[in-house]
Design a protein around this nucleic acid. Structure first.
Lengths: 192, 192
DNA sequence: ACCATATGAGACATTCGCGTCTCATGACGG
DNA sequence: CCGTCATGAGACGCGAATGTCTCATATGGT
């Protein structure tokens, strides 16, 4: 029997395939199942053995993205310390998943219909809660709703991921550009 | 003969079709040619008479989006007055095209390959010049590059359009949310 | 050495959207 | 009243991608 193969190699392989798929689909969202398979170094047949179909693959990517985001939120400890620092930690931790997130963000077909993953709602709630905490503590302005700030965070992360992918922004500037714009905006701060 | 039909009705019709196509494709970027036609109230045959194929349709939408953006930039008079006011005017003028822009922004296949419309480069240059002007006048901070601010503007406009489409943000708040976040950020301003 | 299993390669039918075609209809101008 | 032209409806073939299948191979454990 090969139960050890099941419990040790398989998940690694599946994860590897998912990550390559994410990387490819981020650049070319219309990539073929065959292209995805080649990109992961396996054959189309094997890809179909792991994922029932393209839909199942995208769903798996969605779950992976949600998992990574939730892990990032956990690591970022959103409810500790100043809210602005928590936002910085959040962006830093979420950066590795930015590409995948950008792909899923553009896959708007996921968000229509009733079958949408409730993980997004959980993420939205946690991030919005962070912004609300910052508002209640007086750190953040109250005339921008937490829902919009959450939306804007997603949008900026996706924009940043694409800009990095296209070479318009350096990878090392990713976190700085997003957090500084999101928190401080483009205007010069008055010297205190 | 019906030359008057050509010069009067046709352009209106074509424009109408393009706008309906933009509205539909913004929500469902994988919409069928048949769905686009139905959405515009015409048959698939007529749609194919106006646009050689799906690719031509998307290219026409791209040109329309660029035209509307350039018109918005013209109306906004980016080189007059304080740069922050110019940004506010820019967002206000660009709002009607936000949905179309969001669709094109997600159509990343347009930006790969050499056949990309040079109109985007013109728009990028004009918007980046605005941010640079703001930096040189001391209004904007200099640690966020004009290229990134331009990218972020696109991303926020797209995010805003989608948020409005999904009912997460009120239409009347669109301009305020974007300009305030882009210019001022989420942090509370110190009272001067 | 033997067997089980995952894999790769390839064939196959199916589905789906696209692009083109024809024909009938209706509107509009001469 | 008649001709022209755009349109709608529908049929048709094509190509691409998908999903399923079989078979040969290699790897790894017994």
């Amino acid at each position: 029997m090969s139960h050890m193969v099941y419990t040790c190699l398989m998940p690694l392989d599946r994860d590897h395939v998912l990550r390559r798929a994410a990387a490819l689909l981020t650049r070319k969202s219309t990539a073929t199942m065959d292209e995805v398979a080649r990109s992961a170094g396996i054959s189309r047949a094997t890809l179909h053995r792991h994922f029932a179909g393209r839909d199942a693959l995208v769903r798996a990517l969605e779950s992976l993205g949600i998992e990574e985001c939730e892990a990032a939120l956990d690591t970022a400890r959103l409810d500790e310390g100043p809210a602005s620092d928590a936002v910085r930690r959040l962006v830093r931790e979420i950066e590795p998943a930015a590409g995948l997130l950008a792909f899923l963000y553009g896959e708007n077909q996921l968000f229509e219909g009733e079958g949408q993953n409730e993980g997004w709602a959980r993420l939205d709630a946690r991030i919005a809660a962070l912004f609300r905490r910052g508002q209640e503590s007086g750190e953040f302005r109250i005339d921008l709703t937490p829902a919009w700030l959450t939306e804007a965070l997603y949008g900026l992360v996706a924009s940043g991921a694409w800009a990095v992918l296209d070479g318009r922004v350096a990878t090392k500037d990713f976190q700085f550009m997003i957090t500084e714009l999101l928190l401080g905006g483009a205007l010069r701060r008055e010297e205190p």
